[in-house]
Design a protein around this nucleic acid. Structure first.
Length: 312
DNA sequence: CAAACTCCCTGTTAGC
DNA sequence: TGCTAACAGGGAGTTT
């Protein structure tokens, strides 16, 4: 279940092999995995674009892509005068820079963005083009170095988007928890204004971006707050503890390269959850057995002693 | 406006 | 043992 730390880890791992590469082909075997535009347009518009940079927003991987060169793959007009793209910007386009993606980003302005959401079982692999396909490889990006970026997803919940502006998809998302602009003051104001329980609120991407089921439970445990506490009932000190807890938990998990769930998306992550998936096992603070309940249709793990329903 | 629920998928697991 | 049904889970979209 890739959440913010797993997606961040994936982004960092992909930069080396992918930034600077040009996508030369796309194939997919499950149209529903294309969120926008149509699957046909997705396949048609991607080839010829170079990856200028890779970043993360919420749980999305965001690939900034160059404009297509004049001689694009689909515009093959051998001989003849050949059509000239009517878009004048193309002519001014500097050739993509080799080297750091920062340089590349300056050398060419992205006109399109590829967004990938791994949902719960998506994986991304970079492999030689002649590697046999794995069973659940559904979207294949052919690269100019002969390798492929493969989007593997057992459950097919994952989505890819090709957009002129990433905000078309991420625009309604809440603040990035690790962004300096996300302050305690900010967080307190947001929490105080909500009437529901705190855990579903942490999962709400329009409230706060990037936190999923694992790190919501982990953050609440670290802050010693019961998942069913009403957000508006939290005291200032509790909100501050939760704010710090969320940030520390996410930072720690990024350092550890995420959680290596059995379902594993980011292979080899070292983050060991304190409560998530540890039902019945002893709390690492007080040794009480961890409990599991359902909150907002989500499995929720907590320590009944460390995270009392009411009072301190 | 916010909260609650529905739906998309398939491997895994619980139950008979 | 073998089969079926329930379940998990992110989050957009829909309903309440």
């Amino acid at each position: 279940m890739p959440e913010l730390p797993e997606v961040e880890t994936m982004v960092r791992r992909l930069r080396g092999p992918i930034v600077g590469r040009t996508i030369v082909g796309v194939s997919l075997d499950w149209n529903r995995m294309v969120g926008r535009p149509t699957p046909a347009e997705f396949r048609r518009q991607l080839p010829g674009r170079t990856v200028l940079s890779i970043d993360r927003r919420a749980k999305y991987l965001v690939f900034a892509l160059s404009e297509r060169p004049e001689q694009s793959a689909t515009r093959s007009t051998p001989g003849g005068p050949g059509h000239v793209p009517c878009d004048a910007r193309v002519a001014r386009q500097a050739p993509p820079h080799r080297g750091g993606y920062g340089q590349a980003a300056r050398a060419a302005t992205p006109t399109h963005f590829l967004l990938i959401h791994l949902k719960m079982s998506g994986r991304l692999n970079v492999v030689a083009g002649d590697e046999p396909l794995n069973k659940h490889d559904h979207v294949i990006f052919d690269l100019d170095d002969g390798r492929q970026l493969r989007f593997n997803d057992v459950r097919k919940f994952g989505r890819v988007y090709l957009l002129n502006d990433p905000e078309e998809v991420t625009g309604k998302h809440g603040p990035e928890p690790l962004d300096p602009a996300f302050t305690l003051l900010n967080f307190r104001k947001l929490v105080k204004s909500r009437s529901g329980a705190i855990k579903p609120l942490l999962l709400n991407q329009t409230f706060l971006a990037g936190v999923g089921n694992i790190y919501a439970d982990e953050s609440l445990w670290r802050a010693k707050i019961h998942p069913l506490r009403k957000a508006a009932s939290l005291k200032a000190a509790e909100i501050a503890a939760l704010y710090r807890s969320i940030r520390q938990t996410l930072r720690q998990a990024i350092r550890d390269q995420g959680t290596d769930a059995g379902d594993g998306v980011v292979a080899g992550g070292d983050y060991r959850p304190r409560v998530y998936g540890r039902e019945g096992r002893p709390c690492q603070r007080c040794h009480q057995p961890i409990r599991k309940i359902t909150v907002g249709q989500r499995g929720t793990h907590y320590c009944a002693r460390c995270q009392p329903k009411r009072g301190q």
